[in-house]
Design a protein around this nucleic acid. Sequence first.
DNA 1: ATAATAGTTAAGCATTTACTTGACTATTAT
DNA 2: ATAATAGTCAAGTAAATGCTTAACTATTAT
Lengths: 110, 110
Amino acid sequence: MPRLKVNIDRVFHALGDPTRRAIVERLSEGAMSASRLAVPLDITVAAVVQHLQILEKSGLVRTTKVGRVRTCRIEPAGLSVAERWIGERRSMWERRFDRLGDLLEEPDEG
Amino acid sequence: MPRLKVNIDRVFHALGDPTRRAIVERLSEGAMSASRLAVPLDITVAAVVQHLQILEKSGLVRTTKVGRVRTCRIEPAGLSVAERWIGERRSMWERRFDRLGDLLEEPDEG
DNA sequence: ATAATAGTTAAGCATTTACTTGACTATTAT
DNA sequence: ATAATAGTCAAGTAAATGCTTAACTATTAT
């Protein structure tokens, strides 16, 4: 597996699916095999593997296969990229809000 | 428009599309009309309106119509929801990483 | 009043998505 | 050796997605 560069488009696309977010949630509590991930998800292992491929290509998850079991873990750099993007938008928005003094651009906020 | 509750599924789904993220990026620099948003996007205004509907339902964007122009602005609560979700996963992951002492779970990190 | 501007809505369309099934390989257990 | 386990791969499919065009309404400008 050739250590994929984290790509913001892929990251947000990956997080856009609720099943993949559920996988990320599980993995953030600890590494886990693919089949164990599948248990509470109510989809086939094949489907889970497909999600894992997307998560891995996005850089959110890293997997390693030992024997016949593929162990999946969070790759925190992926989440950081998303968090940073959001943070940048927020700070843009806040900076702008400072420039004009609270008034003119917020008419009927009630 | 009945002041929609911010929903995490809708927020991440909305951010999953690159065009919608581009819209959020623009709006984080300041409020703007729908047709002005459309200019650099290389899609029709109709398509922009469709994206705006999704963004608005997700709680990421708020719009108000005055006369014939609909002004769009960031609703920072939406971004906060996404940021918080990511932050929670990160802190889960970090906490776990503290519990086991740096070693056992990181074999050949080169 | 006419025309131009700004946006809305519905229908249709090509592509992508998230899944399934079924056949397959590789590893571990008996 | 046989069976069970863990995962992989390829087709196929129904539904969702992102877009377009075209017809429409409402507001503003001439």
